[in-house]
Design a protein around this nucleic acid. Structure first.
Length: 470
RNA sequence: GGUCCCAUCGUCUAGUGGCCUAGGACGCUGGCCUCUCACGCCGGAAACACGGGUUCGAGUCCCGUUGGGAUCACCA
């Protein structure tokens, strides 16, 4: 048996957990679970000007909602500055890194010049072989990159990718204020945390040869890499705010189930034959980089919506009842903290779940069950609540009042007898009743609706409808 | 601009040289079911970017073109 697999998700807390980050975390998790490995959460907050505790909390909230449970961490890089500095010092001592006194302005000017001349935007090595410190300047520490040869990246998804060392820059590993930069901290942490597989977005592929050189300089074995293709918006540009919701928690707000989002995300770039819907156990069992695609994928909200509807249909009414309550509050259908008969609510939910694509839609569809009063849709009212239906409604109301047991089957029998007596189709009676009870022309089966609404409320609504006709 | 990555229906994808007159899913669409809506079921339109090779045979391998994306900070 080889060493235990250890992977990590390493977001920087400069924003909320977004769709792309969530998928990266998910693939890390699945790979870890599939191989019985360890999944680590590490917060890359070395950019102290942009990182906030609020975002750390938001990322954790998003991961918890999606069930992306980590085994170790969260570690924070700001707690580990001493470690990075000691690694940097070691490099300087060994001549693998050097102090650079060039000012940001100087660097910027050279970059502009290089850009204008069409040359690679690369540090010119001015301070590479400097013998004496420059007085009065706080230097940065630069890593001495090899100037010839190639660096090979062996990637589980992209295959072998080679880079000419010539185009690798002498990157800054310690800023002039002594704080470490990304390329140093990732490598040090991945070494220190014994990460075996680095699974991240392929926007990092170009960083990888530099990091490999760092591993070499430290004398540590290079981990395996898996660079995931990007997620794009409908215009094929990288997914961003202007494509709509990118924050994971926005999908909570829109009434999505976490397992639906997970299922959608995993199928963006990964597949298992023709299967579309996967349980968490199946995901863990089937996951492999062999069937992760190389091409970027366009985020498609319609398919996510469909998946959500499937997950709603297949959730138990009891669970859905619990989940929908916050949305009923938000809709104003019930008040915060209001006591609900959970069993009754589950029964109501059971009649609506196959016509609700989100928890918001579910909450809205529950309104005429819960609220005391309803409003008529004008078109529905004029079409079905009229002289033709009045007598039928009266007859039904009397029948319901006299019904010994107010059950779905009892109600159905009553409907049948009225319809038979008049020699009309069921719809002739059902539609006016539907409008009387729900205000509109679309609803679950009319017997179920009556059953859920209950005798008292149903009679009140029929009475109201009959009066509205006169 | 340099470097790197990528390319099958509108979208997500199956396809690892013959099983492909290219399969599935979302969306779109015709029908069935039916008290309405939805679910469900049956059917339809819809793709191998282009050009060269290699091979008896290419969506599948190679090269080029085109197109898209990423990256080149004292950000991560």
């Amino acid at each position: 048996m080889t060493d235990k697999i250890r992977v990590r998700f390493a977001p920087s807390p400069t924003g909320y957990l977004h769709i792309g980050g969530a998928r990266t975390a998910l693939f890390n998790l699945l790979y870890a679970r599939h191989n019985n490995g360890t999944f680590i959460l590490r917060i890359e907050d070395t950019d102290t000007t942009r990182s906030t505790d609020e975002y750390i909390e938001a990322i954790i909230e998003g991961m918890k909602w999606l069930g992306l449970d980590w085994d170790e961490g969260p570690f924070r890089q700001t707690d580990r500055f001493d470690i990075y500095r000691s690694y940097s010092d070691k490099l300087v001592k060994e001549g693998r890194a050097y102090y650079c006194y060039c000012s940001p302005e100087e660097l910027e000017a050279r970059r502009k010049e290089a850009m204008a001349q069409g040359r690679p935007l690369k540090y010119n090595g001015k301070c590479r072989d400097l013998k004496e410190p420059v007085a009065g300047v706080n230097p940065v520490v630069r890593f001495r990159m090899p100037v010839e040869g190639q660096t090979m990246v062996d990637d589980l998804i992209k295959g072998t990718v080679s880079f000419d060392n010539e185009q690798l820059d002498d990157l800054i590993i310690l800023r002039s204020d002594g704080t470490p930069t990304y390329n140093l901290t990732v490598v040090v942490d991945d070494v220190d945390m014994k990460i075996t597989h680095i699974i991240r977005g392929d926007d990092h592929l170009n960083n990888t040869p530099k990091q490999i050189q760092l591993y070499n300089a430290f004398g540590y074995p290079v981990p395996k890499f898996a660079h995931l293709p990007m997620i794009l918006g409908s215009d094929k540009a990288r997914l961003s705010k202007r494509h709509g919701a990118t924050s994971v928690m926005a999908y909570y707000d829109m009434g999505y189930l976490p397992e639906a989002l997970v299922n959608y995300l995993v199928r963006l770039g990964w597949s298992y034959g023709d299967q579309e819907i996967f349980s968490r156990d199946e995901l863990v069992k089937y996951f492999s980089f062999d069937n992760v695609g190389k091409a970027a994928a366009v985020f498609n909200p319609e398919k996510l919506l469909w998946l959500n509807s499937q997950y709603i249909i297949n959730s138990t009414p009891e669970r859905l009842a619990d989940l929908v309550i916050p949305f009923l509050v938000k809709e104003g259908t019930i008040s915060e903290g209001q006591m609900m008969d959970k069993q009754w609510l589950a029964k109501a939910v059971a009649t609506q779940r196959e016509r609700s694509k989100t928890l918001i839609e579910l909450a809205q569809s529950l309104r005429y069950y819960i609220s005391e009063d309803i409003e008529y849709d004008e078109k529905a009212k004029s079409k079905f609540l009229n002289k033709d239906s009045r007598d039928l409604l009266v007859e039904l109301k009397q029948g319901l009042e006299a019904l010994p047991e107010f059950t779905e089957s009892g109600i159905e029998e009553l409907f049948k007898s009225i319809v038979d007596r008049h020699g009309i189709k069921l719809g002739k009676l059902a539609q006016p009743v539907r409008v009387a009870l729900t205000g509109g022309t679309q609803s679950p089966g009319i017997f179920e609706v009556l059953d859920v609404i209950g005798k008292e409320k149903a009679l009140r609504r029929l009475e109201k409808a009959i009066k509205a006709i006169v």
